[in-house]
Every structure is written in structure tokens, then in C-alpha cells.
Amino acid sequence: MRPATKKLAMMGLCTAVALVLAYIEALLPPIFHAVPGIKIGFPNIIIVFVLYRFGFKEATVVSLVRILVISFMFGNMMALVYSLAGAILSMLLMVVLKKMNFLSVVGVSVAGGVFHNVGQVLTAMWLLGTAELGYYLIVLTFTGTVSGIFVGLCGAGLVKRISKRLK
């Protein structure tokens, strides 16, 4: 296969896996039950993998396609706005931190997880015109850190195991 075709196929495969992971996660009972509305974000494992194995543009495309498909399939348009805000903020931060070469995949993923929540809460504060939502950020930072560590470890494992030849 031509390298470009191969890469396209790989991106399609990654997007499909991210969608399957999102679907599986939706079927599982919530993990942090005390604080509703919080997920580990299994699809982010794929996003982190694509970011490290292929790059910023590829990861952004997979992330956006995933959000659009999930929103059209399960969600409503409000959910789409929150997800997009979270994903864009988190992607920007992860790209910058990765470039700085200061943190490992796990640290970058934690920052991504936490700022995914920050983006969503800031959007909610803006749309609902309430600053009080900021309280959620305290709890969300803790859960975002835990899920970021999990996602980072899984993502790092994938980067290590899936060979560069796939590029």
C-alpha cells in the first residue's frame, strides 16, 4: 500500500476503535458514582496514542470525528458544544506540553484530562451565565487526574507496543 493510503486506513481504524471504546464506556455503570457525569474517557487512550504515534493534526481529526459521530448517534447538540470545547482545550494543552518535552505521556494525559473538564465547565458557565459552577472543577480535577493517569498508562503502552512501521 502507498504510505498515504496506509496512514488513512490507520486513522480510520483508530477512529473506529475510539468509537467502540466510547460505546463500551456508555454501557458500563458509572465509575465515580458519587459525582455524576464523570467518565474515564476510554476513547482518549486512542487520542493520546495517535498524538504520540502520528501527530497533532491526526489526533485532532480523530478526536473531532469521534465527537461528531458520538453526538449524532447518542447525544444532543448541547452535549456536542461541551464536548468540542473540552476536546479543543485539552488537545491544545497536550500539544504544547508534548512539545515542551517536560512531562511523560502520563503527565500530558493528566493535563489533557483535567483541561477537558475545565473546557466543559467554562462553556457551561458561559452558556448558563453562572460562575457558581466553578465548584465542580475541584472535584473534576481529582477525577480528571485519576482518569488521566489511567488513559496515559494505556496510551503509553500502545505507543510502545504498536510499531512505528504502521506509520
Binding site: 512531562l103 503527565g107 493535563a111 487526574t145
Partner: peptide, 14 residues
């Protein structure tokens, strides 16, 4: 070095 930075980052954040 990256692992140590990760730890510092997470602890400071929390």
C-alpha cells in the same frame, strides 16, 4: 526525569 516531573506536576495540581 519525565516520571519525576509527572509526579511533581500531579502533586502540585492536586
Amino acid at each position: 526525569r519525565l516520571f519525576r516531573n509527572d509526579m511533581i506536576f500531579i502533586v502540585v495540581l492536586l
